[in-house]
C-alpha cells in the first residue's frame, strides 16, 4: 500500500484500484473541533478537483475536493455518529471515503509523506 498527499491537505491510501481518502492531521488541527462531516453517496463519480465532502467545524464549513477521479464505493459511516474521529484520528479511523480510481496516472503528481511534511513545515 502506498500513501500520497495533496497540497489541499488530503491523504490517499492506494491498494490496487481502490483509494481511501481523508484529511491530514495538519488539516484537522487547522479546522479545530469538527462537528459534522457531509460525505458523498456510494456510486457518486468525481473528476479530480470536484467538491466531494464538506467538513463543518464549530466555526466554519470547509470543502474537501476529490484528489483523484473515481467512483465512490464506500463512505465512512462512523463519522456520522462521531465526527470528532477526524480530530482524534485523522489519518486512520477518520477516513472519509473510498474511490475506485478511473485514472491512476493522476497519482503521479501527488506528494510522498516526506514531501508533504516539508510542504507543511514551510507554511
Amino acid at each position: 500500500m502506498s500513501r500520497y498527499f495533496t497540497d489541499e491537505h488530503e491523504w490517499i491510501d492506494v491498494e490496487g484500484e481502490i483509494a481511501t481518502v481523508g484529511i491530514t492531521d495538519y488539516a484537522q488541527e487547522q479546522l479545530g473541533d469538527i462537528v459534522f462531516v457531509e460525505l458523498p453517496a456510494e456510486g457518486t463519480t468525481f473528476d479530480k478537483g470536484d467538491d466531494a465532502a464538506v467538513v463543518e467545524s464549530v466555526k466554519a464549513a470547509s470543502d474537501v475536493y476529490a484528489p483523484i477521479s473515481g467512483e465512490v464505493i464506500e463512505a465512512n459511516g462512523a463519522l456520522e455518529d462521531e465526527p470528532a474521529l477526524v480530530n482524534s484520528d485523522a489519518e486512520e479511523d477518520g477516513w472519509f471515503f473510498k474511490l475506485r480510481m478511473t485514472d491512476p496516472s493522476e497519482l503521479e503528481g501527488l506528494m510522498t509523506e516526506a514531501a508533504y511534511k516539508k510542504f507543511v513545515a514551510a507554511l
Binding site: 491537505h9 466554519a60 470547509s62
Partner: peptide, 8 residues
C-alpha cells in the same frame, strides 16, 4: 481543502 472563515 478551503476554509470559508468569515472572521478571517
Amino acid at each position: 481543502m478551503t476554509a470559508n472563515d468569515t472572521i478571517a
